[in-house]
Design a protein around this nucleic acid. Structure first.
Length: 265
DNA sequence: CTCAGTGTTCAGTG
DNA sequence: TCACTGAACACTGA
């Protein structure tokens, strides 16, 4: 479930597990979609022998920076993930790229559905696509009043606004639903119908939920039982929250949306 | 066999 | 030009 908190957790795992290590082998699947027009060969040539000196993230993008000046920029799409292990123990079925390090450990980008992307950049934060992202609520604090004013300028449903990566980078489908549930706002409400108080409540819920999810290492089994998260999946008509309120499903902003009519107005 | 799905992009519309 | 919507992309697993 790679949204902001999951991606941050993956980035940290790579940072602690691989920083300072040198790549000995780069293995890339021939795949012009996951890679770009440069193709996998560009990666192999530029990364072999390089040492990982740092990592970064904004929204759902994260990157690994090497001492030769190149960064590998990744987006996990819907089903992408990072796996790590030691030589001799790997299931390669969905691996698109594997980096093998001199201490006989490896790191792999896996993605069954191929909606993930891997790119090479020299300045990942300053170049598209990352430069086009809006604020990241874990890294930036533009302020609740600025947030409220921006929301009130827009006519789209508030859920679609939260999913707009050019506005709130890193918010995905489950986070958007959780934020609106906890802020008690109907996901279909247009931005320009929200009061300043309501918009501020959304901002507060967004910060609280993202901070908590990151602190828990995005381990959803540790999310509080009061969160909608645990009860929202499967679109079944019997679904209820921890307080017994019925959960409805509809489509907002082109995405399946779970919400609670007795709580959200 | 059919279809939903935690992602982004882009063509089309008003 | 801007804001917004919905289809396309691609594939697995229920």
């Amino acid at each position: 479930m790679p949204e902001l908190a999951e991606v941050e957790t993956v980035r940290r795992a790579v940072e602690t597990g691989f920083r300072g290590k040198r790549i000995v082998t780069v293995i890339c699947r021939q795949d012009p979609i996951v890679f770009d027009e440069l193709g996998p060969r560009a990666f192999t040539g530029r990364l072999r022998g390089q040492t990982l000196i740092g990592t970064g993230r904004k929204g759902k993008f994260f990157w690994l920076t090497f001492d030769g000046g190149w960064s590998v920029l990744m987006h996990l799409g819907m089903t992408g993930w990072i796996e790590q292990g030691r030589f001799g123990q790997m299931d390669l079925r969905f691996a698109r790229m594997q980096l093998e390090f001199e201490d006989e450990t490896w790191l792999a980008f896996t993605d069954p559905r191929r909606l993930g992307r891997i790119r090479l950049r020299t300045d990942p934060l300053g170049e598209p696509p990352v430069s086009k992202l809006g604020f990241d609520v874990y890294l930036d604090d533009p302020g609740r009043d600025w947030f409220a004013a921006e929301v009130q300028k827009r006519k789209a449903p508030i859920k679609a606004i939260l999913l707009d990566q050019g506005f709130t980078a890193g918010i995905g489908n489950w986070l958007a639903d959780e934020i609106l549930f906890q802020a008690r706002i109907d996901p279909r409400r247009r931005g320009d119908t929200l009061t300043r108080t309501e918009a501020r409540a959304i901002y507060r819920a967004m910060k609280r939920i993202v901070n908590r999810a990151v602190k828990l290492g995005a381990d959803d089994t540790k999310f509080p039982n009061t969160w909608l998260f645990h009860h929202r999946w499967g679109k079944n008509a019997e679904a209820r929250t921890s307080t017994g309120d019925p959960i409805e499903h509809c489509t907002v902003g082109g995405r399946t949306t779970a919400w609670v009519p007795t709580v959200q107005v």
